[in-house]
């Protein structure tokens, strides 16, 4: 019989100020720098003032190299623009998965109508590291709408599981990754429960946006907790004690040296300096945002 996975630690998210944008950061944490291959988990929820101009909201153009920043959209809409001339708006239930590769400049702003109407946007952004041999490949963006995300309802429709990457039951996520990754979006009604198989070789965690879950029938998880999974065991057992939204991320560790500074994730400090130089001389491209 498959064994339940224990928890290594519970890491409550804390507030950080990212250039004027205040959000909840679950990773990196005082106790944990990364959970290979995951380097960052940010949870942002913000209500805009009425008549906010899109050009004045969100995160303006900035570079990345060497990994994939990924956004799960929960409320509102996120408008992604980048230096490869992609302009993409994703709404609740959808995903923006961008492999930065050798370099890309992108911006992340609220959808125009969301900002102007004074509505709320909510997203989780997490970073997935890339192996060294893929860090300098071409950048690639994939926008995945909710209706393109394989989804199954379980537990008398009290649990909805969206499969963005990897495998759950007979559903395969459409996002292709360089290393084995499982990325699930979980929505629980109270009393909903689900058992999720996660390979013992995967490092992973569950993060709650809100609500409350019981883990393995013995541990309580609350909103903004990141529950770091132990490797021993193969089953993650979750039961909701309130309506809850959560994500489960797990992946094969890359086990390479990591140099992560600012928006770049490479293997050595010299490569970070190279990334700085390449960005500054324009090798990662340029983004001139065009606003309606």
């Amino acid at each position: 019989m498959a064994q339940l996975k224990k928890l290594k630690k519970i890491l409550p998210a804390f507030k950080v100020n990212m250039g004027g944008i205040v959000l909840d950061q679950a990773l990196p944490h005082k106790k944990v720098d990364m959970i290979d291959p995951f380097l960052l988990v940010h949870h942002l929820e913000h209500k805009f003032d009425n008549n906010t101009k899109q050009a004045n909201a969100g995160v303006p153009p900035h570079p990345h190299r060497g990994f994939a920043p990924v956004s799960f959209v929960f409320k509102g809409g996120v408008h992604h623009r980048d230096s490869t001339n992609v302009s993409s708006v994703i709404y609740p239930g959808g995903t923006q998965w961008m492999h930065a590769g050798k370099g890309i400049v992108h911006s992340e702003r609220p959808a125009k109508e969301i900002a102007e109407a004074g509505e709320t946007w909510e997203l989780i952004q997490f970073w997935v590291n890339a192996p060294a041999k893929y860090k300098m490949t071409e950048a690639k963006y994939v926008g995945l709408d909710k209706d393109k995300t394989p989804t199954v309802c379980l537990s008398n429709d009290n649990v909805e599981v969206g499969v963005v990457a990897g495998q759950f039951q007979d559903l395969k996520g459409p996002i292709e990754t360089f290393t084995p990754i499982m990325a699930l979006r979980l929505t629980f009604s109270e009393t909903g429960e689900v058992d999720i198989p996660v390979p013992a070789s995967f490092n992973g965690f569950v993060y709650l946006l809100d609500g409350a879950l019981t883990y393995n029938d013995d541990t309580s998880l609350k909103a903004k907790d990141l529950a770091w999974l132990d490797n021993e065991g193969e089953i993650v057992k979750l039961k909701a004690t309130q309506n809850t939204r959560a994500i489960l991320l797990a992946g094969e560790p890359i086990n390479e040296p990591v140099a992560t500074y600012g928006p770049f994730v490479m293997n050595e400090q010299s490569e970070i300096m190279q990334a700085m130089r390449d960005y500054q001389v324009g090798k990662m491209g340029k983004l001139d945002e065009v606003f309606e």
Binding site: G19, L40, V59, P60, H62, P63, G262, P263
Partner: peptide, 12 residues
Amino acid sequence: TQIRHGALNLPF
């Protein structure tokens, strides 16, 4: 100062 998701959005 740049945190992990440092915006680094100051162009040269």
